[in-house]
């Protein structure tokens, strides 16, 4: 479903601020894989997701999604294959536009935008049903501006928008990090539900080891732009935080130093 080959990216090459953000990343995802990604600050987790999403082009390497080479595709074009939810709840929706307009924009992801009406009456009923499933009372607020919703509501809507047109790959970039624990749990629950119901392939970056262990069928740990651990199958099911820390120390030669990941 996804194939990353030798992806390398260096920021500020040739200056004192040179940083190798991604160092020869190789990763293959099967259809239906739900992979959680953990790692310390600057490990390259978000950078890898941005490389797939096409925020910038990698220095070398190739990205293939479902048999299509998207390495050179501009961000807006590859959006056809990808559903994205960001860390910042303000980033995923157009805050000055209505809830239903946002949904209508997402409904047309990957399609050419014509001079037909942006929203039809039939669609509106569809949206209402979808929102009802979120169980956040949003089905009565179709013509409310996105900016007036809470962070959790926005992330839930963004999640809905990302999966409305079934994406080949769902990219979740710490999408619960900015939320309070209760809301974060709710959004994670929705994430699980969407992925399961749609049988989606997903990559989820998180800073929370417990979440990384509890969700998905595969876990990747990154450090200094490399994938240093890749745990799947039965091994993943029996994983604990202690085991993960031990493995990290062994694989990287250092202690895991990130309170946020341990305490979160």
């Amino acid at each position: 479903m996804l194939e990353l080959k030798n992806i390398t990216k260096t920021f500020n090459a040739g200056t004192v601020n040179e940083k190798i953000a991604l160092n020869n990343i190789n990763l293959t995802l099967e259809e239906g894989d739900f992979v959680t990604i953990i790692g310390g600050n600057g490990a390259g987790k978000s950078t890898m997701l941005n490389a797939i999403a096409g925020v910038w082009l990698p220095d070398h390497g190739s990205i293939v999604v479902d048999g299509v080479d998207i390495t050179d595709m501009p961000e807006y074009k590859r959006a056809k294959f990808l559903g994205r939810v960001f860390q910042d709840p303000r980033m995923g929706t157009a805050t000055d536009m209505w809830l239903e307009e946002n949904l209508a924009l997402a409904k047309r992801r990957g399609k050419s935008r014509t001079l037909r009406w942006a929203i039809t009456r039939k669609e509106r009923d569809e949206y209402r049903d979808m929102l009802k499933e979120l169980d956040l009372g949003l089905e009565h607020r179709l013509t409310t501006k996105m900016g007036l919703f809470s962070g959790g509501q926005r992330q839930a809507v963004t999640l809905l928008m990302a999966t409305m047109q079934k994406p080949k790959l769902l990219l979740l970039d710490e999408h619960t990090a900015a939320l309070d624990p209760k809301t974060a749990a709710k959004v994670l629950e929705l994430t699980d539900k969407f992925i399961k119901e749609g049988n989606l392939t997903a990559l989820m970056v998180t800073h929370n080891m417990k979440d990384a262990i509890a969700h998905g069928n595969r876990l990747i740990m990154m450090n200094q732009g490399r994938i240093i651990l890749d745990i799947k199958g039965e091994e993943k099911k029996n994983l604990t935080v202690e085991m993960l820390l031990e493995q990290f120390a062994k694989a990287s030669g250092t202690e895991f130093m990130n309170d946020r990941a341990l305490l979160g």
Binding site: Y76, A79, F86, R90, G92, A94
Partner: peptide, 14 residues
């Protein structure tokens, strides 16, 4: 309108 409001979101929505 989305372009004027949020570039990130616009790119993500193709």
């Amino acid at each position: 309108r989305a372009t004027g409001c949020n570039l990130n979101m616009s790119h993500a929505q193709g």
